[in-house]
Design a protein around this nucleic acid. Structure first.
Lengths: 138, 138
DNA sequence: ATAGACCCTGTAGTGGCTACAGGGTCAAGA
DNA sequence: TCTTGACCCTGTAGCCACTACAGGGTCTAT
């Protein structure tokens, strides 16, 4: 199949597929005499895997690691689990940060009177107040 | 005060302050005869404001909008509130995405047996399975 | 013959910094 | 007097994971 078809089947953009090839996530496929890329099902499965990993928030570097485990065939389930748990922790920590943002924001927004005069306690608090937002450390 | 002192007082990096100046978030300060930037308290308050906004997750573009409201002096509280609520919605939607990731991830990780053999249902599910992750519909 | 869908390469842009390289300034101490 | 070290300057390149062209070629249907 050609690149457009692969894109359709996996929900990727054509440019993204070429990008993955350029950075070594996908192998270079065979080319026809018109120089078009020709993909087979193994490519589709690999790209699907990459996309699923990305949807779960893994970085391309982590995806590369996972792929090299699969390609090498000599990984341990424990390694994969460690990578997964590490990433899960990162996701949880992002959630915590965003929750903190949400709570500060909704508190600030609730102080708005919503009128059309240029006085706003939201802005004033941020500009002058002893505003204290528990930011993420690191 | 000089740029290093301003950085210390606001918790910014020196490079970030220069970057904000370059992109028009902070005004160009006066320079001494040694060409060092010289800041006064108005700069500190403005930078503090920017930092607080960034901590709340506002983009620099949104910060620019807020600053131009303050600078113009002819905004309405309702405008600010709209911007705040819009951003709050964005934060909430990110939290929802991350929660979805978290749940899929923790489910996948929990299927790992953790042994040192190269078989792992986490990987297999992503690679072969009819894995279904409810991704954000943007 | 031509339109339109598809493919190619290569480069530049996005956001919000961060990290140099390569240089200047200034005060304290040996 | 010299040197060390902390600070400052400009300008550019790099980070991530794409995305968006520009400028061209190919293929199929009408």
């Amino acid at each position: 199949m050609r690149i457009g078809e692969l894109a359709r089947q996996t929900g990727c953009q054509v440019e993204t597929i070429r990008y993955y090839e350029r950075v070594g996530i996908l192998p270079e496929p065979k080319r026809g005499q018109n120089n078009y890329r020709h993909y087979v099902d193994a490519h589709r499965r690999r790209l699907q895997f990459v996309r699923r990993c990305r949807e779960l928030g893994f970085t391309l570097e982590e995806v590369r690691t996972l792929l090299s485990m699969i390609d090498g065939g000599t990984y341990s389930c424990a390694e994969v689990e460690a990578l997964g748990r590490g990433h899960l922790e990162a996701v949880r920590s992002k959630i915590a940060d965003l929750r903190q943002m949400e709570s500060t924001l909704s508190e600030l927004v609730s102080t708005c009177h919503g009128g059309d005069t240029p006085d706003c306690s939201f802005l004033e608090e941020l500009f002058e107040g002893q505003f204290e937002h528990k930011a993420a450390q690191q």
